[in-house]
């Protein structure tokens, strides 16, 4: 274990703990960003450039923003005034311990420990691309199909239902017409959802 790995691991673990324990939802999300960056740094520490940058691009650039957006659109960033500890904690802790014990046992028993560490492979992006396009092309396509299906599903759920008469809904491009009344904004609530 090198010093750089120790630092990265410490950062990641502390950020992950903060993401769980902080009271403010937005702070939690930001702490999670730090954890993601820590994981990406761990990848980079292993010379896995592609995975590291993809980790940042996908998790920091997209997933966290999505979470943050969901937090913003659904509720204020205020934490509920509840106690952090509850009875379900005991159960949760028990389950976590059991899972950890199982995993640890499995890893300790596995053959990985006996194997000699391989010489560091020099993996370029090109090799990753070639592997994805030849050996792993079927999984790639299946995942692509799955994600496309999820995308279309989300669009269908979000789409407004067409009126019964079959009349197509006016598109927003028609707003240029002079007679079209502007869409009505809901009146702002006293709290306004801002916090």
């Amino acid at each position: 274990m090198t010093l750089s790995f120790a630092l990265i691991a410490l950062l990641t673990v502390v950020a992950a703990l903060a993401a769980m324990l902080l009271r403010n939802l937005v702070h939690c999300a930001l702490a999670m960003v730090v954890a993601f960056v820590g994981i990406a740094a761990a990848f980079l520490n292993l010379d896995a450039q592609f995975v590291g940058f993809a980790q940042i691009l996908v998790y920091v650039g997209a997933v966290t923003i999505l979470i943050v957006f969901a937090v913003l659109l659904t509720r204020g960033g205020l934490a509920p005034e509840r106690s952090l500890f509850s009875t379900s904690w005991v159960w949760g802790g028990g389950v976590a311990l059991a899972v950890f014990a199982t995993l640890a046992w499995a890893i300790r028993q596995s053959v990985i420990r006996d194997r000699q560490p391989l010489p560091e492979p020099d993996v370029t992006v090109k090799q990753i691309g070639e592997a994805l396009m030849t050996r792993f092309v079927l999984p790639l396509e299946v995942i692509g199909l799955l994600l496309t299906a999820a995308l279309i599903g989300a669009v269908i759920i979000a789409m407004k239902e067409a009126p019964a008469g079959g009349k197509r809904e006016k598109e927003s491009a028609d707003l240029e017409e002079p007679g079209n009344p502007p869409s009505v904004m809901p009146p702002p609530t006293p709290e306004g959802g801002l916090s």
Partner: peptide
Amino acid sequence: DLDAGVLFFFAVGGAVEL
């Protein structure tokens, strides 16, 4: 001179949104 330079570019660009 990174092997995945363009990817690096877009990855760090994502942090601006944050």
